[in-house]
Amino acid sequence: MLSITTAELNTLLATFIWPFSRILALVATAPILGNPSIPVRVKLGLAIMLTILVTPTVEKSLPQIDPSTGLGLIILLQQLLTGIAIGFVMRIVFVAVEMAGELIGLQMGLGFAIFFDAQNSGQIDIIGRFLGVIASLAFLAIDGHLMMIALISQSFSTLPVDAKGITDTTFTTLVNWGGEIFKSGLQLSLPVLTALLITNLALGILTRAAPQLNIFAVGFPLTLSIGLLVLALSIPFYAPILGRLVYDGLNLIMGILNISQMNMP
């Protein structure tokens, strides 16, 4: 008859639950993988599969602590925070792109063209959603989702499971990384914003020269057309900026996890 002691059961639970919590937190918060359109069962299955693959490489370095104790719960919380931090870094990249789209849409006169975004549980501008789709395709094209999975597997050797986890300096780094939303969002939207600014100045001069001109009948179609034209011409130049954002995010994750950084090709 097979028998197992409480100590052995706790060891088995700790061997699985701590790596699983870190991986599941990443899968739940990372872009693409954490999309609400993906069923919860698929996310859980992916996290379980990755945990089964990773566990044999980390079980020797796991602390011999009962997961049901206070210290065990602290370790569990640290693993959740580590996974969430990795997913948060890459989420910032997509938020920056969507902010650029919202700035462009507002200046084009499409500020009213919004719809519900299930991924962010809120409303989003149609141009922001469009650029977000482009960012997702670029992310998949450079295998960003596979890089995140590779990083989370390497993290168990460079940032082992213990009660220390990520430090205060890491949280400061994450807060500073949030400024990338405004920096990169403005950089991506600047060509269209510049063209629309020139268009509005021209319309203002035209209105002064011909007061009888119906500016509302002319201005809206003109700004919309010019905005779409400049956006279409600018999209090919977004690729290097999006690539830089993704690789900067991956390098930031590597810095958090103490992994040697990569160079952007």
Score class of each variant (00 low, 15 high):
218 V>P: 04
198 I>R: 15
50 L>Y: 03
236 P>S: 10
212 Q>T: 09
16 F>C: 13
16 F>G: 13
187 Q>L: 10
45 G>P: 07
97 V>Q: 09
112 F>Q: 10
75 I>A: 04
87 G>L: 01
154 Q>A: 11
231 L>E: 06
175 V>W: 07
88 F>L: 11
241 I>Q: 08
118 A>H: 12
147 M>I: 07
263 N>L: 07
51 T>G: 00
142 I>Y: 02
188 L>H: 08
265 P>R: 15
165 G>E: 03
207 T>P: 01
262 M>P: 05
223 T>F: 10
165 G>K: 02
127 I>W: 00
14 A>G: 09
227 G>D: 10
28 A>W: 05
133 V>Y: 10
12 L>E: 15
16 F>P: 09
233 L>F: 13
123 Q>E: 10
172 T>P: 03
93 V>Q: 04
259 I>L: 07
141 A>V: 12
86 I>D: 02
71 L>T: 13
74 I>G: 00
165 G>R: 03
177 W>I: 15
60 K>Q: 09
10 N>L: 15
82 T>R: 05
171 F>D: 15
12 L>F: 15
254 M>A: 15
64 Q>V: 09
72 G>F: 07
56 P>I: 12
231 L>T: 11
43 K>V: 08
132 G>L: 07
148 M>V: 02
237 F>E: 12
117 D>C: 14
239 A>Y: 07
26 L>N: 00
194 T>M: 14
44 L>I: 13
76 L>Q: 06
100 A>C: 08
66 D>L: 06
25 A>H: 01
123 Q>N: 14
164 K>T: 13
111 G>Q: 08
36 P>G: 03
97 V>W: 02
180 E>C: 02
2 L>W: 08
57 T>M: 07
58 V>I: 12
40 V>L: 07
211 P>D: 11
223 T>Q: 13
110 L>F: 08
85 A>D: 14
188 L>V: 08
198 I>E: 13
102 E>P: 00
225 S>P: 04
58 V>E: 12
24 L>I: 01
242 L>G: 10
254 M>G: 15
77 L>K: 03
129 R>A: 03
79 Q>L: 02
54 V>D: 00
14 A>E: 03
222 L>A: 04
65 I>V: 03
210 A>I: 06
17 I>S: 12
163 A>E: 09
64 Q>M: 10
147 M>F: 05
145 H>F: 12
128 G>M: 01
181 I>K: 00
105 G>I: 00
103 L>S: 13
110 L>A: 06
110 L>G: 03
11 T>C: 12
264 M>Y: 05
219 G>C: 04
126 I>V: 12
143 D>L: 10
56 P>D: 08
23 I>D: 00
67 P>R: 05
11 T>Y: 06
44 L>Y: 05
115 F>T: 09
64 Q>E: 11
24 L>W: 00
104 I>D: 00
16 F>K: 13
233 L>E: 07
20 F>T: 14
250 L>C: 11
19 P>G: 04
265 P>W: 14
116 F>D: 11
232 A>M: 09
92 I>D: 02
113 A>S: 08
